[in-house]
């Protein structure tokens, strides 16, 4: 059965087919509860996944187009080597701009570790040159060789060794979020299958009567499928809304808070959790249909 059949089934219910299965007790409650709980958890997995994606983009944007040259030289050669480095950079294709950081900027960078009163002039601190790429970027290996010839104390750091593990960590977090959602949906399918099986077993006499008056398996299955699909849809709707409400209670994104304070949805991302109820309904539809047809075959 295709998705269009599912939509047609939900849009044009066969009231009589709905009624042939008696109103059930615990399976109805169980299905709605499971769908609601799973949707609630899926909202957090989604938030994790989307936040990891944003983080990966931010890190990439921040680090991808920049590089740093660190100049470690005796104090009397520092100025000469810095000028030599800047001269090399000016003539290197793919570099848009380059400048040496001021003492104040270097002090600000080190302040979190050594405090604000660090006497830079008394310490052998390397000089840092920040460069920004343009166009296709520069040839890192060629630049390294030229720097080695013109300014032996200069070392190019293209941020690759920082960027790579961060990008890998962020993409794995995103994968983890996606895998969690899949596991949640699989668990929901398993629980709904169990509930549907219980409901079918409890209604064996109803199935017998329906068969005696000429009901085909698909007619009988439809009565169960529609019921379980609507329960899952409703439960997941409530669970997703509750999850979204809970996400709004999380602290908003702050640079000082790092990753955890950015865990949530932004902009159009708020619409993504609204996809969970229809997905839960679809999962319930196919899980119940498979369970019903299998059980009906057993009940022959």
């Amino acid at each position: 059965m295709r998705i269009t059949d599912l939509l047609a089934e939900l849009r044009q219910p066969d009231r009589q087919a709905d009624r042939v299965v008696p109103p059930s007790g615990h399976t109805a409650w169980l299905t709605s509860f499971v769908a609601g709980t799973m949707a609630f958890l899926a909202v957090f997995a989604l938030a994790l996944s989307l936040a990891a994606g944003r983080l990966a983009d931010r890190w990439s944007e921040a680090l991808e187009r920049t590089a740093t040259i660190r100049i470690s030289a005796p104090e009397e050669q520092m100025e000469t080597q810095t000028r030599a480095v800047l001269a090399v950079l000016e003539t290197t294709p793919g570099i848009g701009s380059a400048r040496a950081l001021t003492d104040a900027e270097q002090q600000a960078l080190l302040a979190p570790w050594f405090g604000a009163d660090l006497p830079l002039d008394t310490l052998p601190i390397p000089r840092l040159v920040e460069l920004h790429e343009e166009g296709e970027g520069y040839d890192a290996e060629g630049l390294r060789q030229r720097l080695a010839a013109e300014a032996p104390g200069a070392v190019l750091d293209d941020h690759l060794r920082w960027r790579q593990p961060l990008a890998v960590a962020a993409s794995r977090l995103r994968l983890l979020g996606g895998a969690s959602i899949l596991l949640i949906l699989a668990s929901m399918a398993a629980m709904i299958t169990l509930a549907a099986n219980a409901s079918l077993a409890a209604n064996a006499q109803v199935i017998r009567v329906l068969r005696l008056v000429g009901a085909r398996d698909i007619y009988i299955a439809r009565a169960f499928v529609r019921r379980f699909t609507l329960r899952a849809l409703t439960g997941a709707g409530v669970g997703a809304l509750a999850g979204m409400a809970a996400v709004t209670l999380l602290p908003s994104a702050e640079a000082a808070g790092g990753f955890l304070t950015g865990l949530g949805f932004q902009g159009a991302g708020w619409f993504v959790p609204l996809l969970l109820p229809p997905i839960a309904g679809t999962v319930a539809f196919f899980a119940t249909r498979a369970a019903a047809l299998r059980k009906l075959k057993e009940l022959t």
Partner: peptide
């Protein structure tokens, strides 16, 4: 198969000894 049996039963009217109703309807 089961569907063919179902279609066949639509051409038959059966009065069962124990009636066989759906008690909630």
């Amino acid at each position: 198969d089961r569907d063919e049996v179902a279609r066949m039963r639509r051409r038959m009217g059966v009065v069962h000894q124990d009636c066989q109703f759906l008690d909630h309807l």
